Measured scan of single mutants.
Amino acid sequence: KRPMNAFMVWSKIERRKIMEQSPDMHNAEISKRLGKRWKMLKDSEKIPFIREAERLRLKHMADYPDYK
């Protein structure tokens, strides 16, 4: 399994928030909203998620050195 990228790290957190607020919303609609919101974020707002994704990538490389 591949490590999460910055969007996936961010969307995992945000998806929970949306599901708590709107439990009946369909997954496809949540995904569309998340995509739009991610694109609207400033680069500076994405930095913590980019850093976390990089940390996960490095950990994945250490844990699975033969992964292609």
Rank of each mutant, 00 (worst) to 15 (best):
K1H: 12
K1F: 14
K1A: 11
R2L: 13
R2Q: 13
R2I: 14
R2F: 13
R2W: 00
R2M: 14
R2Y: 15
P3T: 11
P3K: 12
P3M: 03
P3S: 14
P3H: 11
P3Q: 14
M4I: 14
M4D: 13
M4S: 07
M4F: 09
M4P: 11
M4G: 08
M4R: 01
M4T: 10
N5P: 04
N5R: 01
N5Q: 01
N5A: 05
N5Y: 05
A6H: 04
A6G: 12
A6P: 05
A6Y: 01
F7E: 03
F7A: 02
F7I: 01
F7Y: 09
F7M: 04
M8K: 06
M8Q: 15
V9K: 00
V9Q: 00
W10M: 07
S11G: 07
K12H: 12
K12Y: 05
K12A: 14
K12I: 11
K12G: 09
I13Q: 11
I13W: 03
I13F: 08
I13T: 10
E14M: 07
E14G: 02
E14P: 02
E14T: 00
E14H: 04
R15L: 05
R15I: 08
R15M: 10
R15P: 00
R15S: 10
R16M: 03
R16W: 00
K17R: 08
K17Q: 09
K17P: 04
K17D: 04
I18Y: 07
I18D: 02
I18A: 05
I18R: 00
I18P: 03
M19D: 03
M19A: 08
M19N: 06
M19C: 07
E20A: 07
E20R: 03
Q21R: 08
Q21K: 07
Q21I: 10
Q21F: 03
Q21D: 08
Q21S: 09
S22F: 14
P23L: 07
P23G: 06
D24Y: 07
D24C: 06
D24K: 04
D24P: 01
D24Q: 10
D24W: 07
D24G: 11
M25R: 04
M25N: 06
M25P: 00
H26R: 11
H26I: 08
N27A: 14
N27R: 07
N27I: 06
N27H: 14
N27D: 15
A28L: 09
A28T: 10
E29N: 02
E29P: 01
E29A: 05
E29R: 00
I30S: 03
I30N: 03
I30Y: 04
S31M: 07
S31N: 15
S31H: 08
K32M: 09
K32T: 07
R33D: 14
R33V: 15
R33W: 14
L34C: 05
L34K: 00
L34E: 00
G35T: 15
G35H: 15
G35N: 14
K36T: 14
K36D: 15
K36M: 12
K36V: 13
R37S: 11
R37I: 10
R37L: 11
W38S: 04
W38I: 02
W38D: 03
K39P: 01
M40I: 04
M40N: 12
M40Q: 15
M40W: 05
M40A: 14
L41Y: 02
L41T: 02
L41W: 01
L41N: 01
L41F: 01
L41D: 01
L41Q: 02
K42W: 02
K42Y: 05
K42N: 13
K42S: 13
D43R: 05
D43N: 09
D43W: 08
S44A: 12
S44M: 07
S44C: 11
S44Y: 12
E45W: 05
E45G: 00
K46R: 06
K46A: 01
K46C: 01
K46H: 02
K46Q: 00
K46N: 01
I47Y: 09
I47C: 04
I47P: 00
I47T: 12
I47D: 10
I47E: 15
P48C: 03
P48Q: 08
P48K: 03
P48H: 07
P48A: 03
P48L: 04
F49C: 00
F49R: 02
F49E: 01
F49Q: 02
F49N: 01
F49P: 03
F49Y: 13
F49A: 02
I50L: 10
I50V: 11
I50E: 15
I50C: 04
I50P: 03
I50T: 06
E52H: 04
E52L: 04
A53D: 00
A53E: 03
A53K: 00
A53Y: 01
A53T: 03
E54T: 03
E54D: 07
E54S: 03
R55F: 07
R55D: 10
R55Q: 12
R55L: 08
L56M: 13
L56E: 09
L56K: 03
L56V: 05
L56S: 09
L56T: 08
L56D: 08
L56W: 01
R57F: 06
R57W: 10
L58A: 14
L58F: 07
L58K: 09
L58G: 11
L58C: 10
K59C: 11
K59M: 13
K59V: 13
K59E: 13
H60P: 10
H60I: 09
M61T: 13
M61V: 13
M61L: 11
M61Q: 13
A62I: 09
A62C: 11
D63G: 08
D63N: 14
P65T: 05
P65R: 05
P65G: 01
D66S: 07
D66R: 06
D66P: 08
D66I: 06
Y67L: 14
